[in-house]
Design a protein around this nucleic acid. Structure first.
Length: 947
RNA sequence: GCCCGGGUGGUGAAAUGGUAUACACGAGAGACUUAAAAUUUCUUGGUCGCAAGACCGUGUGGGUUCGAGUCCCACCCCGGGCACCA
């Protein structure tokens, strides 16, 4: 047999597959469809690195498996080729971006083809092709027609280095996502897309798709749906009112002031006494950068609006109005009701400016050690806790109840006409005898705790107030009669005096409140207090009732409209014409595409205009409406435009009449499985869901969602654990590894190196292991024998492997699928001869990962047709377990022996056999057997008496 | 601060509550070779022991269980996302 020559084999089969159009998707078949998609790359000058191709290989394996399972598979590839890097390169070298793009796509295509991926190259798309972006522009015009695209003066994010406006999604930590320069704010006329009109559906329809949960969560967080209430606060002696948005209507009675954003429109309307002060503050906050203003760690500032007060609609009280820049104009109503007792920011602000803090929510805890029992009755009691600290020995006074096995603080009921402090003192003396107590303070308001009181056999709802004392002497009186003798009085260290060791779940609040003069605001749920008729309701109940009474229910989103203009050359021209008489007029559909003109210079201009604006021949046009003089829009689209619908163009890439044929769309949408990076979750993935929903609304696509399933790969890092990048010089090019080890070995390695969804550091040294594996599969062909009988354990291992590999590919657990095949191979190598059928199955299971070598071996054993067309192996469910099984014997939880038993053996038989084993007898001899457990097929567990 | 992941040998990593470290890399020893590479055989969590074997061991501390890497509670560290969103 010839030695394994990957270069020859891989070239040979790649050529044959292309000739036979093996991976070309047919439109004429009644097989069920399967549309697999990977994110198409931006063809940079750097080429692909080993990280880029991992998802291509993964979905290639899935696509290959689907084909042999009988699906008509669409697995396409293309180029997301508009973008800054190409333009910047063009500026540097003077080469046409279109030319550079062609060069780069050529290189990328070659790199990908080297891997033997089963893409249908006849459907390749390129977003910079006028035949493609004609339809990107067409969709934009439809959005304009429906009022979803609008031009508006926006205070946008501006990158001074790239000289380009950015969408919110492109700003990371106040910096340009691409170049890291601090983003400035600029007022500019910008085209906007009204993605916010789809906010509710983009959130809700996530329920209808199979996306990884973390992707759904991240999108939901970004969309930021928040249910709450709008409540009007009348301004005293005025017809004006301030509307606030709140998610905590239940705390309305705790509102002690109102805060407006500096940009709030009402500020100009109010008869403010300290106008100068207020205006100074507003000016100062306008001068702050976005980063400074939104830095939550900075101390909050504000200024009171004097001469004007608002009325709390619930209490009727007059409350002050403040202006502070921690309140944002563009969220909610630009005004908040401040509840310092139950909100961190309000609390800090109130402390700083000495504003009133009013408790309206009592914390409520459910004891998790002794939770209330549903079968017991419940009693409400008012309690006092006495926290007694002895500074001399740094210890706390507790009572240990040996009967129930718990430690508790001194606790007792509060009698009528008694304060918590008085009750606490009384209880300490009665129960412990200590009399020299110095009262320090009451630890805030009451806390409600629900628990099951063992000693009374009933559920308790305790509303407890704690009093804090220090011990100043050791005098003790006699402990009152009647106290249980099971009680022991102890002093414990602070380490022991915590929830968990102590039975009192309220203790965490007491400790918090003891340690600082101002305890932190309580922001959790609880029971409403100090709120008139709403007292005693849970916070949740009160939310609804107070909203009904004083406000109205509303839903707000954090999502903002999409800034769609870019002041650059290398993007789709926005197909709009500005006419002095007619305003913004869309380019007529028949004139699409608006083709990018060729220019000599691509440099962006400092005044923030697109380079296109300097080409007067292109700019000056006739108004399509009135035929008067008009000018083209010179801004271009962001490069998220072309990628928002590319999966639709793959379906019918050559269509000249529409972006895709309706029947074909019916057949192929939605994408069945889309894999891509987590970094696109709130950008591309969200944008394309928006575009798709829009196209659905205007009847252009048949489904409400573009992607039925979305998964995500982990990043491949460089060997040192850093990100791979050309500037760091740590990029690994797949071409080099294909040359040395072959595409098959590289593919196997990329799948084997670790969990697909987890980040991994690359290790070129380890590729050799996968190469050895491929070579050993190659060599196993020397042992083939058509007549040899397969040993039963091999038979079983084979069936188990078919099952495991099939399931693991579906779960994207490629690493364990490969290791399963390695285990199988290790076993087969031990045999003198291997049956052809067994070997063929191995080749088939390996084919999705290593398509070339398996195809070669498959043809060498005499197959005329491709291994990539042979039906996926199925397993025999009756041959997954052997007749005898090895089980482990545990004595007191420790493995002491092993035993081989029949699969059908009964518990009685197995345990008898077990006891007879000397290795077991040693551990059980002379001891009382308390328990014997047999887990069929797994183990026997014997529990014996103590020592 | 909040929301997701994750923490297991020298390394990448396996493990429906049931024999922790499968599979692979690396390392060590042997075979083949004039030699090296390649290939191949064996060893490879730690401690003690001549051995049989014993004990310890999945970030830390508690808990549930006959039995915990896996479940519960509290915490520490690393990666990612969001962040003055009312």
């Amino acid at each position: 047999m010839k030695s394994y020559d990957h270069k020859k084999i891989e070239k040979k089969w790649q050529k044959k597959w292309e000739e036979k159009k093996l991976y070309k998707t047919s439109e004429k078949t009644d097989k069920p469809k399967f549309y697999a998609l990977v994110e198409f790359p931006f063809p940079s000058g750097d080429g692909l690195h080993v990280g880029h191709v991992r998802p291509y290989i993964a979905l290639d394996a899935i696509a290959r498996k689907r084909r042999v399972e009988g699906f008509n598979v669409l697995y396409p590839m293309g180029w997301d080729a508009f973008g800054l890097p190409t333009e910047n390169y063009a500026i540097k070298t003077g080469k046409q971006p279109a030319f550079v793009t062609k060069q780069n796509t050529g290189n990328f295509r070659k790199q990908i083809k080297n891997l033997g991926a089963s893409f249908d190259w006849s459907r390749e798309v390129n977003t910079t092709d006028p035949e493609y972006y004609k339809w990107t522009q067409w969709i934009f015009l439809k959005m304009f027609e429906k009022g979803l695209a609008y031009k508006s003066k926006m205070n946008i994010n501006w990158c001074p280095k790239d000289k380009i406006g950015l969408a919110n999604e492109e700003v990371v930590d106040g910096k340009c996502e691409r170049c890291g320069t601090a983003v400035e704010k600029r007022d500019k006329d910008q085209w906007m897309l009204a993605i916010t009109k789809y906010a509710d559906r983009l959130d809700k329809d996530l329920d209808t798709v199979d996306f990884l949960e973390k992707i759904k969560i991240q999108q939901r967080n970004w969309i930021g749906r928040s249910e709450g209430a709008e409540i009007d606060f009348q301004i005293k002696d005025s017809s004006e009112k301030i509307t606030v948005f709140t998610t905590r209507a239940d705390t309305l009675y705790g509102v002690t002031y109102i805060v407006l954003a500096p940009e709030h429109r009402l500020i100009a309307e109010l008869p403010i006494e300290n106008k100068k002060e207020v205006e100074d503050y507003i000016k100062k906050s306008k001068d702050k950068t976005e980063i400074d203003r939104t830095d939550a760690t900075k101390e909050k500032t504000g200024v009171e609006v004097k001469g004007v007060v608002a009325i709390n609609p619930a209490t009727g009280e007059e409350i002050p109005i403040w202006i502070a820049d921690y309140v944002l104009v563009n969220y909610g109503t630009g005004a908040v009701m401040a509840v310092p007792a139950h909100d961190e920011r309000d609390f800090k602000f109130a402390k700083k400016y000495d504003l009133e803090i009013r408790d309206v929510i009592m914390p409520s805890v459910v004891d998790h050690v002794n939770p209330p029992r549903s079968d017991k009755s419940s009693k409400v009691r008012k309690n006092a806790h006495a926290i007694v600290y002895d500074p001399n020995q740094d210890k706390y006074l507790i009572i240990r109840n040996s009967k129930f096995g718990w430690d508790t603080v001194v606790i007792g009921g509060i009698e009528e006409n008694e304060s918590a402090e008085q009750a606490a003192v009384r209880e300490v003396i009665e129960e412990t005898g200590y009399t020299n107590l110095k009262f320090i303070k009451t630890l805030g308001g009451p806390v409600q705790a629900s628990y099951f009181a063992k000693h009374k056999d009933e559920n308790r709802v305790a509303i407890t107030t704690a009093a804090y004392f220090e011990l100043i002497g050791n005098d003790r009186t006699e402990i009152a009669a009647g106290e249980e003798e099971t009680n022991e009085i102890l002093w414990v260290s602070p380490q022991e005096f915590v929830v968990g060791k102590m039975v009192n779940s309220e203790l965490k609040f007491w400790l918090e409140r003891m340690s600082s003069e101002y305890f932190p605001p309580y922001t959790g749920d609880g029971i409403v207090i100090n709120s008139g008729e709403f007292d005693g309701l849970t916070a949740n109940e009160a939310k609804g009732k107070i909203t009904n009474e004083f406000g109205r229910k509303v839903v707000k989103y954090k999502l903002k409209d999409w800034v769609f203009s870019r002041q650059r050359y290398w993007g789709e021209p926005i197909p709009m014409i500005n006419c002095n008489d007619c305003g913004w007029v869309p380019v007529p559909e028949k004139d699409l595409p608006v083709v990018l003109p060729k220019v000599k210079h691509y440099e962006p201009t400092d005044n923030g205009e697109s380079p296109l604006s300097t080409i007067s021949k292109w700019v000056n046009v006739q108004c399509p409406k009135c035929k008067g003089d008009a000018e083209r829009e010179t801004d271009t689209m962001p490069n998220w435009a072309g990628s928002s619908w590319y999966y639709l163009r793959y379906i019918d890439p050559k269509n000249k009449k529409s972006f895709a044929d309706k029947n074909k769309l019916d057949k192929w949408t939605p994408v069945d499985w889309y894999n891509g990076g987590m970094e696109h979750t709130t950008l591309h993935l969200l944008y394309s869901r928006f575009w798709h929903k829009f196209l659905y609304d205007i009847g252009e696509v048949p489904t409400i969602e573009p992607y039925a399933k979305r998964t995500s790969h982990g990043l491949i890092l460089a060997e040192g654990g850093e990100k791979m990048s050309k500037s760091k010089g740590n990029v690994v090019n797949p071409d080099d590894l294909v040359k040395i080890y072959g595409a098959d070995s590289l593919r196997v390695f990329e799948m084997f190196m670790g969990p697909f969804d987890q980040p991994v550091a690359w290790s070129s040294d380890s590729v050799v292991g996968s190469r050895r594996f491929v070579e050993r599969v190659w060599k196993l062909a020397e042992k083939l024998d058509k007549k040899i009988k397969t040993p039963s354990d091999v038979e079983i291992l084979l069936n188990q492997s078919i099952k495991k590999v099939s399931e693991d590919i579906e779960k994207m657990s490629f690493n364990t699928a490969i290791s399963t095949l390695m285990i199988l191979l290790n076993r087969l190598e031990k045999e003198e001869s291997v049956n052809n059928k067994v070997y063929e199955t191995v080749l088939q299971l390996l084919a999705p990962f290593a398509p070339h070598v398996t195809e070669e071996l498959w043809s060498q054993i005499g197959h005329k047709s491709s291994v990539h067309k042979a039906n996926w192996p199925s397993y025999d469910a009756s041959k997954l377990v052997s007749d005898t099984i090895k089980i482990a014997i545990q004595v007191n939880g420790k493995v002491r022996a092993e035993l081989e038993v029949s699969r059908e053996a009964t518990q009685k038989d197995v345990i008898e056999l077990t006891r007879a084993l000397p290795a077991v007898d040693k551990w059980i001899a002379g001891r009382v057997i308390k328990k014997e457990i047999y887990v069929p097929g797994r183990l026997v567990s014997i529990v014996v008496d103590g020592n």
